[in-house]
């Protein structure tokens, strides 16, 4: 079992506190959803976790190693990262984008060793992209492109998948498709951390929900414990009635009124 941990991380940018003393762990075989309003520090915390930004205080560790001091390729073999913005500079083929998931193994789209090619084919299959593999990215729908990026992460064979708003601007069905892929990744032994905005979606697919506000983590636990009406209001400034389906993981969030103002 491996563990990715943020220990008391603080990030300041231009005097503003973006992340304040945040601690969080993601273990293999679990899916964690990171929730919070815009500007809560979710992306910065995630980027600090994978060493893309240096925290002003605290540590981000993968097992016992500081992620920031790991070589980029060594880190990429353990953690796959899907950033929030996924701009394609060139309309490459879907399969070539998935093949980039093997970059840390010395592969490139035009040079795949047999084990790289096998990993790419597996990932394409797992994400239901077999038919679309030869298509150019600019001919794919938003949902299809999102699945290509998840497949790219899966192809890396990494233990951890960190996805920053993987379902942004997708319709409900595509959101569930992508979340099912992430859930499946965790069920097969991976550790997933996803930034989400839909609390009900998070409750359905995540083992744990971490709530952030103003750079601080205000709740961390199983959906039923972390996602209470009080915490929800504290995080988002919205009064809501939250009901869970008995024995299941479905959650209904009925917004009553705007509390904060």
């Amino acid at each position: 079992m491996a563990e990715l941990a943020a220990n008391n991380i603080s990030v300041h940018i231009d005097g503003a506190t973006i992340v304040a003393d945040a601690s969080l762990t993601v273990a293999t075989s679990e899916a964690v959803a990171l929730l919070g309003p815009n500007g809560a520090g979710k992306t910065s915390l995630m980027r600090a976790l994978i060493g893309q930004i240096a925290p002003d205080a605290g540590h981000a560790r993968l097992d016992d190693e500081e992620t920031r001091s790991m070589r980029p390729e060594a880190l990429a073999r353990r953690i796959a990262y899907l950033p929030q913005r996924r701009p394609m500079a060139w309309p490459m083929r879907a399969r070539d984008v998935v093949a980039l998931g093997r970059f840390a193994y010395g592969a490139s789209p035009s040079r795949l060793a047999p084990e790289d090619a096998a990993a790419v084919d597996d990932a394409l299959g797992a994400c239901g992209l077999g038919e679309l593999a030869a298509r150019r990215m600019d001919t794919l729908s938003g949902g299809e492109a999102a699945r290509v990026h998840v497949a790219r992460a899966l192809a890396s064979g990494a233990d951890f998948l960190l996805a920053d708003e993987p379902v942004a601007s997708l319709d409900p069905l595509r959101q569930h498709e992508v979340m099912a892929l992430i859930r499946d990744f965790a069920d097969r032994g991976g550790g997933a951390l996803a930034v989400l905005h839909d609390a009900a979606l998070a409750a359905r697919y995540a083992d744990r929900i971490v709530l952030m506000r103003d750079g601080r983590i205000i709740a961390d636990g199983p959906p039923r414990e972390a996602l209470t009406a009080a915490r929800f209001e504290e995080a988002y400034g919205l009064r809501a009635e939250i009901t869970f389906t008995p024995g299941g993981n479905g959650a209904a969030i009925r917004v009553l009124d705007v509390a904060g103002g």
């Binding site: 893309q52 980029p72 880190l75 990429a76 990262y81 899907l82 980039l100 840390a104």
Partner: peptide, 21 residues
Amino acid sequence: SGRGLSALALGEEAARGLGLD
């Protein structure tokens, strides 16, 4: 250095995540 250019097609943030310096 051609391999890194392909990785950069996904953007610098993603390319860094792929293991590119």
